[in-house]
């Protein structure tokens, strides 16, 4: 059972990351390559505040959100003016810097060893334990994050974001403050990614730099495009498919390294086939990627 609980928790955390990435990429057309870094910033903020500063879990989560949002706003301020591909490169650079800072600021982050012993959240006398308690905690957080994103996508905010995504000049000509809209949305994306980092820190009770690098960014993009843009359901489907698909091979049997390679090859094949035959994703609402 614990194995399935673990899988479910992982799918939920990645679903939250994907839905907040979708707010940036799908709805606002901001091709964020920094999402995994904000995820890491949230995880480290939570670990530092709870383990070193002894802060309670709730304040740590709120501050993680705020830290992610503020850093995203500060990064977005100069870079969001760049065109699509230059913006991707700038954020790629940002994510390299974040990883390198985490490894080198040993006084704060404990360097390559990471930070251990993040406490479990507790409500009054009740302390969330591993297993069902943790699953419940992650599920409540997921419900909250999805509720917020559902509100965004079912309000006048959606039309304004899509206008900015599709034609910035026309959006401006209709009274939309394009720069402010983009910075706000990018900051929200950073904030929610950081909140996911807090969720992960509470679950793993351990943070380390290698979880928030290039591999994670590519995985998140893949999840978003497998599930499909501008879709709450897609943000579940993408992570579910990409997390559970490789797990299935565990039960097929086989020994040693070869099964791992077959797994990766099939994984790649799945992505290629999807992009060829269903560019809008499995349940997405938008065709392909625009820059």
């Amino acid at each position: 059972m614990e194995y399935f609980q673990h899988l479910l928790i992982m799918v939920l955390i990645y679903a939250c990351l994907t839905v907040s990435l979708d707010l940036n990429i799908g709805h606002a057309g901001i091709l964020s390559f920094g999402h995994a870094s904000f995820y890491g910033i949230g995880a480290y903020t939570t670990a530092i505040l709870t383990v070193y500063a002894g802060l309670d879990w709730f304040s740590a989560m709120v501050l993680a959100f705020a830290t992610g949002a503020i850093i995203a706003a500060l990064i977005g301020l100069p870079t969001l003016r760049l065109g699509g591909d230059y913006f991707i490169l700038a954020l790629f650079g940002f994510s390299l810097i974040v990883t390198s800072l985490i490894i080198n600021m040993e006084w704060l982050t404990n360097g390559p060893f990471g930070i251990r012993g993040v406490p479990r959240p507790s409500i009054g006398p009740y302390q969330v334990q591993s297993g069902y308690g943790m699953l419940g905690f992650i599920a409540i957080m997921t419900a909250f994050i999805f509720f917020v994103h559902w509100r965004f996508a079912s309000s006048p905010m959606k039309a304004a974001l899509h206008a900015v995504r599709d034609d910035e000049s026309v959006a401006m000509s209709l009274g939309i403050n394009v720069v402010r809209t983009k910075i706000t949305v990018f900051a929200l994306g950073g904030g929610f990614a950081a909140l996911c980092g807090a969720m992960g820190a509470f679950y793993f009770r351990f943070v380390s730099a290698d979880s928030y690098g290039l591999q994670t960014i590519i995985l998140l993009w893949a999840m978003l495009f497998v599930g499909g843009n501008c879709s709450l359901l897609g943000a579940f489907v993408g992570p579910a498919v990409l997390m559970l698909f490789p797990e299935m091979f565990r039960f097929i049997g086989g020994q040693g390294w070869d099964i791992g390679h077959i797994q990766e090859a099939l994984y790649g094949l799945l992505l290629i086939l999807l992009m060829m035959f269903r560019p809008q994703g499995l349940v997405g609402n938008k065709v392909g990627l625009r820059t």
Partner: peptide
């Protein structure tokens, strides 16, 4: 929706959207 984009309103800010 194309036409409604031209109306500026409170509900398009994240806080009021929620």
């Amino acid at each position: 929706d194309n036409v409604m984009v031209g109306v500026r309103q409170k509900g398009e800010t994240p806080f009021w959207a929620i």
